[in-house]
């Protein structure tokens, strides 16, 4: 039983979609699927599948996770208004977990789901491959959302730090140094995806490592965010 507070979750949902960030969150998958449709219309079936892994999985998914996870926690911590939610007899870990669940569901819906749709649009003849990216995306999205929630609980620059992590660490260095895969959330998701579809190349960490590492980062990050909230400090204007 995951400890969730329905009120916190509802407020987080409203915070996510009641602001402009919610629109950007939906714009990213819309662009991805739009591009997939464009590629399918202009080319043969199966051509341009790189869109799903190189753009959808590597870029759109972490960006959606970053926007979702930081939006449910970041603004309230930044402006201090989270104090209204925390001055309650509710465990801070429950607050963090409830917020995580909202950011996580948004990541699954707007980050992982569109991978399947884009994959099927480009190549309807290989549903197994699209399914691989959906499941791999779900695993990576779960981990990304947790990591970025943890980041949002320590720094108000969570979006910048998160982008640097995705673009520099995983994108640039991950492409140059093979050893990075051991500390690359995306590589772990790809490992899971490759276990489902043989058309997906495994980064080579092994499925057990990928799943275990993802679980450890997820649970650790959400616990860390809760622990940070336990020490939340109210600051005045003075």
């Amino acid at each position: 039983m995951i400890p969730i507070n329905a009120t916190i979750a509802r407020l987080s949902f409203q915070a996510l979609f009641g602001r402009r960030r919610g629109l950007v969150l939906m714009l990213v998958p819309a662009l991805l699927i739009g591009l997939a449709v464009l590629i399918r219309v202009l080319t043969e079936q199966g051509v341009g599948y790189e869109l799903v892994d190189s753009v959808g999985f590597t870029l759109a998914l972490p960006i959606v996770a970053l926007l979702g996870a930081s939006a449910v926690l970041g603004p309230e911590v930044d402006d201090g208004s989270i104090v209204y939610l925390l001055a309650k007899p509710v465990s801070r870990h429950v607050v963090a977990t409830s917020k995580y669940v909202v950011g996580w569901l948004a990541t699954l819906a707007f980050g992982a789901g569109p991978l399947f749709v884009a994959g099927m649009v480009i190549d309807a003849s290989d549903p197994q491959r699209a399914l691989g990216w959906l499941v791999g995306g779900a695993v990576a999205g779960t981990t990304y959302a947790a990591l970025f929630l943890g980041l949002a609980s320590v720094t108000r620059h969570a979006v910048v730090v998160g982008l640097l992590f995705v673009l520099l660490w995983e994108g640039l260095l991950g492409g140059l140094l093979r050893g990075i895969r051991w500390l690359d959330l995306g590589a772990w998701g790809t490992e899971v995806a490759s276990a489902i579809s043989s058309s997906i190349t495994a980064p080579g960490t092994g499925l057990t490592y990928a799943v275990t590492a993802s679980a450890v980062i997820t649970l650790g990050s959400v616990w860390f965010a809760g622990d940070r909230l336990r020490s939340f400090t109210m600051r005045g204007d003075e």
Partner: peptide
């Protein structure tokens, strides 16, 4: 917090809620 009510100087940034929704959320919490 069952015995303490806090009115911080901080503004409520839950501008997208109505006053009633905000107070109700507090009651639920």
């Amino acid at each position: 917090y069952r015995r303490v009510g806090l009115v911080p100087e901080r503004e409520i940034s839950f501008g997208y809620l109505t006053g009633r929704q905000f107070v109700l959320a507090n009651a639920e919490l």
